[in-house]
């Protein structure tokens, strides 16, 4: 029984490795090349991706991406190759690493610092303001009440 179990496991592993090692179809290669090339910057046109650019260098870069996809390299491995040649500039989305972290986290940090300072300022204002207790509230006298009634009446009739 145990031997049979190992046999099944062996066959499963063997066939799954065949499935994983199966060469990519042309459609899969194209799709991976497109996906990776869209994340790479054309080194000569700069504002376009390698996928969109018609420059000769971009076309040569696409050919290299294709060659490496067929060789079984992952998107990250291919991007790492281009970064090792051109630097972070070559990827359209900057990596969250080194000085690039300023771009990713700088605005949130500034927002946090600004929010903290505003909060502190508000706390100081609240502390400085003298609270009024109900006993300190002076009731409106007759003259005041009359003025309010007049104002309301003129408002209701639309007079000034």
């Amino acid at each position: 029984m145990r031997y049979r179990y190992f046999q099944i496991c062996f066959f499963l592993l063997f066939f799954s490795s065949i499935v994983f090692a199966a060469p990519l179809t042309e459609e899969q290669v194209q799709s991976k090349v497109r996906e990776i090339s869209k994340t790479l910057r054309c080194a000569v046109c700069q504002s376009e991706s390698v996928w969109e650019s018609n420059a000769e260098l971009a076309s040569q870069m696409r050919a290299i991406v294709r060659e490496r996809v067929i060789a079984g390299e992952s998107g990250d491995e291919i991007r790492a190759y281009f970064i090792s040649r051109y630097g972070d500039f070559i990827v359209l989305k900057p990596r969250v690493k080194g000085i690039n972290q300023v771009i990713w986290f700088g605005p949130f940090l500034l927002l946090g610092v600004a929010g903290f300072l505003i909060y502190r300022k508000i706390c100081v204002w609240v502390k400085q303001a003298t609270p009024v207790t109900p006993s300190e509230i002076v009731p409106i006298d007759d003259a005041g009440q009359k003025r309010i009634a007049e104002a309301l009446a003129s408002y209701n009739t639309g007079e000034k």
């Binding site: 260098l57 040569q60 870069m61 050919a63 290299i64 281009f82 040649r85 051109y86």
Partner: peptide, 13 residues
Amino acid sequence: FSGKISIDYGIYG
């Protein structure tokens, strides 16, 4: 021919 040397050296112009 293929631009491989240039890309290996990070050439952009």
